[in-house]
Each structure stands twice: as structure tokens, then as C-alpha cells.
Design a protein around this nucleic acid. Structure first.
Lengths: 306, 306
DNA sequence: CTCCATCAATAAGCTTGAACTATGGATCAG
DNA sequence: CTGATCCATAGTTCAAGCTTATTGATGGAG
């Protein structure tokens, strides 16, 4: 394309094409008529063909001009829309946000998303679920903008903010000897096969989970590794073993499983929102703000329910 | 849209977005680096948001910039295509041509169209068929660019060029007394009901058609008016009457109809191509040229076939 | 820790070209 | 023939985009 063409040419062309009168078109453009004639002539030189057939009495579009007119109009329209879109993205009113979260935090995340998409209906949200390590890796490599993780450790490239705190509970099959009561000593579980997620999925979370057992002097050996809480609970219900779980994943239990409060020193799990340090993009800040308005009101699950 | 934005901004933006380096981008654009910085800053002011996040060490696209980049690229691409299209239309290499023609000239028109669309494959052709008066009216009001008419009279706003000349023949039902021979005196048809198109569809053509009858001193009265030749011939075959027709519409006759050469002074019909006087548009001229290469080689149908 | 190289931003002067005014030439009405 | 209309041309002006020179910030090498 000829590098000399400018939007000015299109704007002037459209004015003349609509008025079919150089004088009036120039007036509408707030320029003098000769300037307009000049620019149109220049445009015609760039395109290589006449766009108007003019006599001193009349101005008419040529076929080429008539072909070009709707396209030029469309082009200016698109540009306006694109500029507007870019502006809205820049102000965080539109765009796309990638949220990665641990599966066990679905409840909190769905609340955050509901509030956020209410505030920013034009923002497309993409969610990814996975383990804490996956979430952090996604954040790091830029695949995610927001991460929801459990019991992560401080890092200098990631900002963490606490979303919720919850206690650990034991989940046992209903036929377990301790299942008749609603609380249990960790030592009473020492001989049961332990079902848990792999330690590689989140070392710190794993260690937090098993803290009550280690507190009770039990040598933690996982009998069955399983990658998500739902499956773990189902295995427990099937009588394959017991588990120690954050309270929130035990709110809905299948028939064969029972939740028991843990006696002894209280152990807590923390759910954090993670962002790249210094990520000041409006959408990220907006998500943080939306999140703050929903968390902190109902997310202290450290105390037992009556 | 802000009136100050120009394509220069888009070109510069794309260069920086691709190089992610003001110095190299400026070099590629053949301008100095400060000029580029200035223009990008100006673009950002127009859009209202940052498009690049820059330190003295690195340049990165912001979300808004990343959103805008493909759109800007697309916009420039479209513009280039549109300019090219307009150029081709102006040179007659593309565009659209409206051809109006009389139904009885379908044979000639289809030859013209075949040749023309071979030469100008990118030109869209729209055809309309009708009576000579309709064709001329379409030309006049600009609905058609090319007209094919029969026996039109000279006018000062229309150019006519002769495409073909053909004799008139009589068409009679096979049970007609004269049908045993292959020629007939016009007087022998004097008492038969005459089937013809309405005179309002083309006064001159009508008068040409009926000339042989008037030459023979017959008072021409049309018994049955019919708007197209195919139907007229079918009516003749059905025994409803006789007709006088240009030779070309009688090349294919149904079982009940027979073509008879007319004795007496030869009468001819002329098929013309009509264009608006002074219509010098390349497509029109190209159509005329294409037409000239196909007509004149086989379109003298004034003589009888052996 | 200092020094140097890199790179974008800023400052100031220059140059290009778009717009202006004045005028010419063509066409049409009266 | 005269006047009015309207686009094109000529010459001038001035804004704005470009240039060179410089500053300031950052990161790597010694």
C-alpha cells in the first residue's frame, strides 16, 4: 500500500462523496475548498484512478469512487470501534482475565467470579483448575493472571493475600470404630490407611494436612494417592481408608463417609489469592477489589459448627 | 472518534509492537527515534490509555496494546485491499456491469457475456430481460449500463451500434392451408388471427414486424397479445393463429408450428447494442470491445437457409 | 562499587506540506 | 452578453512532524 495515504484522505473523500459538492464538503470539514480539491486529487493519485467525475457544474462519483465509498466508511467505523475497545481494555472495562485455582477452593472462587462478572460484564473470564503448584506455575509463566492457592509459601515474585482460613477435620467410613462419635483423637487413626493427594501437588499444603497426625506422633504414610478431593472422599466412603481434609471440602459427604472434628492442637489451612508482584493491570486490581468485597465475611472456618 | 488520529499512528504503532524496541522500529520506519516516541505518545493520548509499558531497558505491550495490535494490522490490510479494489474498478478490471436485453436476443447476449466474462473474470454481471422500452428506460435511469434492443430509433442520449440483422418469417400452425409449402405470400395470412406482442412494448419493432403485412395491403389487427416470443410460438402451435417473427426466435419450433419464408419485399429486424451517450467507463468500453469480437461473424440472418 | 553501554524521553531548531487567500476558467441562467 | 456558481491553479503562511543533541534511568562488566 502506498505509504502516503492518511485517514485525512478518507475523511475528506467521504465528505465530498456525501455532499457531491466541494464547497459544502469543505465547509463541513472546516477547511477551505482548494485544500479539499488538493487532497482529493492526491488521493486519486495514490489510488491511481479518478474517484469523482467533476465539471464546474456537477460532481459525481465514478464507479471506482462508488465502490470505495462504503468501504472507506466501514474502515473509519471499525477504527473508531477498535480505538474504543482498546480504551476499555486499558481502563479494565473489557478484556480477558485468566483465573487459575485449586479445585478445593471452587466455592470461594465461584463467589469471586460472580461478583467480578457483575462488576465487569464485558470481561471474558477463563478459568483453569489444578494443584497449587500448577496454579503458581501458570501465574509465573503468564498463563494466569489470578491464582487461588492453598497454604503457599512467600515468594518474592508473587503477592499473596489471605482469602479464608479453615480447620482440618477427619473423614472416616461410617463403619469405622470412631464413627459413632463426632470427634476423634488423631491417634485413633494411626493404623488406618491414609488417602491423600500426592505431596508433589503442593508440599506445604500436604504438610499442613498431615500436621495433626504428626502432632500425634504418627508416622505419616499415604496408602492411596488421589489427585482430587472428591475422589478421595469417595474412596473413604467406599471404606478404603481415612483422610484429613480442610473443612470446606467436607461440606457435602456421600452416604458412607462421616466427618469427625479433630481433638488436639488446632491445625488450620489457608487459602490465598496470588498475583504476580507488580501486576498493576486494571483488571487484576479490579478482581482483587471484587474479591475483597466477598471474602472476609463468611470464610473463617476454624471453629467447629455446633 | 478523535479526528486527530492518522494512519501514521497505526503504522508506527505496529512497527514498535513488532520490534518491541523504539530504536529498531524507528530505523525500520526510516525516521529518528524521538519522532517515533512522540507519535506513540500522541496515539496513547488519543486512545486514552497506555499501549506500551516501557522502561529504559524493555518495551512491552500492555493488554490494551495487545488487543489493538491485530486490529490495527487488519485495518491496514483492509485499506490496502480496498484501495486495490477501487483501482481495479477504475481500470475496468473489476466491478459490476448491468446488462438489460430483450428476451428474443438471448442467443446473441449469451455469446457476448461468455466472451466478456472470459476477458474480465472479476466483473460481476447482472442481467435483466424485458421489452425494448424497458431496456431503454433502464439505461436512461442508470439501472442498466448495456442494453440490447430491437429496432430502436435514434435518440440523442443513447448510442446504438448494430449487432445483427435478420429477416422476418411467418409462423403458422401445421394444419394451416399454406403450411404444405415452405414459403408464403403475406396476403395468404390476411384472414388469420394475428398473435403478436403489444405495440407498447416497442412501437418501432412492432411496426417492423408487421411491415410485410402492411406491404401486402393488409389492415393489421392483433387478435392475441402476448408478452414473449416463446408463448406466441406456443399459441401458434396450438392453432390459435399465425405470427410474423424475426428469424432467430423461430430456430426451435414445437411440433404444431411451421416456419414459412415470406415472399415479397424483404423486411428486416435489427438488433442493437445501446449505451448511454458519453458513458466512457472502462467496463462499458470493455463490453463493447468484447461484443465486437463476437458479433459480425455470424449474425446476418437476412438470407434464407437452403 | 564504579564505569560504561543501552535505550527511551526531552529540548530546540528545522523543514515539509497542508491550509489559506486570491484568482482563473468553465458552465449555465436570465 | 452579463452575472453567478463552482472547481482548479498559484503563491504564501504556519502548524506539526522530523532532526540532532542531550538527559536520565537501568543493567551488566570490570
Amino acid at each position: 500500500m502506498d505509504q502516503r495515504i492518511e485517514l485525512r484522505h478518507l475523511r475528506y473523500f467521504l465528505a465530498v462523496a456525501e455532499e457531491l459538492h466541494f464547497g459544502r464538503a469543505a465547509q463541513r470539514l472546516n477547511i477551505a475548498q482548494p485544500a479539499l480539491s488538493q487532497q482529493i486529487r492526491q488521493l486519486e493519485k495514490i489510488v491511481g484512478v479518478e474517484l469523482f467525475r467533476r465539471t464546474s457544474r456537477s460532481v459525481r462519483l465514478t464507479d471506482a469512487g462508488a465502490t470505495f465509498q462504503p468501504r472507506a466508511r466501514d474502515l473509519l467505523g471499525r477504527l473508531a470501534a477498535d480505538l474504543d475497545e482498546a480504551g476499555r481494555v486499558g481502563r479494565g472495562e473489557a478484556g480477558r482475565l485468566d483465573v487459575a485455582f485449586i479445585t478445593s477452593a471452587t466455592a470461594i472462587v465461584s463467589e469471586q467470579l460472580r461478583e467480578f462478572s457483575r462488576r465487569r460484564p464485558d470481561v471474558q473470564i477463563k478459568v483453569h483448575d489444578g494443584f497449587t503448584v500448577d496454579v503458581l506455575a501458570a501465574l509465573e509463566r503468564g498463563t494466569a493472571d489470578i491464582g487461588i492457592v492453598r497454604d503457599a509459601e512467600e515468594r518474592d515474585d508473587i503477592d499473596l493475600s489471605l482469602l479464608a482460613t479453615e480447620r482440618f477435620v477427619a473423614v472416616v467410613p461410617t463403619e469405622h470404630p470412631a464413627a459413632s462419635d463426632d470427634h476423634v483423637e488423631a491417634t485413633a487413626l494411626a493404623t488406618d490407611p491414609l488417602i491423600l493427594f500426592p505431596r508433589t501437588a503442593g508440599a506445604q499444603a500436604f504438610d499442613m494436612n498431615t500436621q495433626p497426625l504428626r502432632d500425634a506422633g504418627i508416622d505419616v504414610r499415604v496408602a492411596q494417592e488421589c489427585s482430587n478431593w472428591h475422589t478421595i472422599i469417595m474412596f473413604v466412603a467406599a471404606g478404603l481408608g481415612v483422610t484429613i481434609a480442610p473443612y470446606s471440602v467436607t461440606t457435602l459427604l456421600p452416604a458412607g463417609a462421616r466427618r469427625l472434628e479433630l481433638d488436639g492442637p488446632p491445625a488450620v489451612s489457608r487459602i490465598f489469592m496470588a498475583t504476580r508482584r507488580g501486576d498493576s493491570r486494571p483488571l487484576v486490581q479490579a478482581f482483587i477489589a471484587a474479591s475483597e468485597s466477598v471474602t472476609g465475611r463468611d470464610h473463617d472456618l476454624t471453629k467447629g459448627t455446633p
